[in-house]
Design a protein around this nucleic acid. Structure first.
Lengths: 134, 134
DNA sequence: TTCTAGATAGGAATGATTCTCATTGACAAG
DNA sequence: CTTGTCAATGAGAATCATTCCTATCTAGAA
């Protein structure tokens, strides 16, 4: 997809096609990947000197609101995943690195090359009764 | 279990039986529950005026190292779970509240009373190849 | 080319967690 | 029971991620 196309998609979504947003779209949405606001900021800054970290946060939030990425808040770090189809994750408890986890059917112990898995759990997200009634 | 027993268990684990730790053990370990450092601090302070938040953090870390609680870092908040058997969790994306999730077999949509679930995912924790080799 | 609402940069503010260090106190030894 | 030592605590500073605030700037419509 070309820069021109991202500009169009941003405008169709009601967002101005600023250089920051167009580049962010190219970096984040062109392929399925995980990225933190700080990583995005670093990648933006490589080509747009002066971009603020704040902008990286805001763009990711906006993409999330559009359903273009999914937020994953794990271990004091917030990740955004441009693969929005349901899938599972593998997280390093030491450094926070994150990867996709093969689907449930696959042999857990064999597939994630080089990882030592210590725990597998399910997390359900939602709104609790109190928050629902407000 | 009595205060006397907690003192003994702490000493057997190699920890001094300070009032802070004995009370924390009573509060956290007597029954299966989820607690954050700030919650523990508040509960400690109710009976031991002057305890520091720092101490709540440290005690929970020590209990974790002993395998007495499990750490769950979700959504910018760290929880410690005194139910160390494998089970799943339900987290409120708005307020951070956490509950146990009924086992996989149960009907997800029906069981958590009053909650609106928006997503269910698996998380595998472990050490990544790089962290393993250091 | 002009105008204006929305976007950005930068810095301050917030919150959770960790770090540092002087003081205190648990408990082993006498 | 008294004493000495080293771990534990409390207090505050430091760190890190994230959000808030606001003056300035600019994309894109007119």
């Amino acid at each position: 997809m070309q820069r021109r196309d991202w500009q169009k998609r941003l405008q169709q979504a009601g967002l101005r096609a600023t250089p920051q947003r167009v580049l962010a779209a190219e970096l984040v949405l062109a392929r399925a990947r995980h990225i933190t606001p700080q990583q995005l900021h670093a990648e933006l800054a490589a080509r747009l000197p002066g971009v603020s970290l704040n902008t990286a946060y805001q763009i990711l939030q906006q993409f999330e609101a559009l359903g273009w990425v999914r937020r994953l808040a794990l271990g004091a770090r917030t990740w955004f995943d441009s693969n929005t189809t349901p899938h599972d994750h593998l997280v390093c408890t030491r450094c926070g690195r994150m990867e996709d986890l093969p689907p449930e059917q696959a042999q857990l112990s064999s597939v994630p090359q080089g990882w030592r898995i210590t725990r597998v759990m399910r997390i359900a997200e939602g709104l609790c009764p109190r928050c629902l009634s407000r």
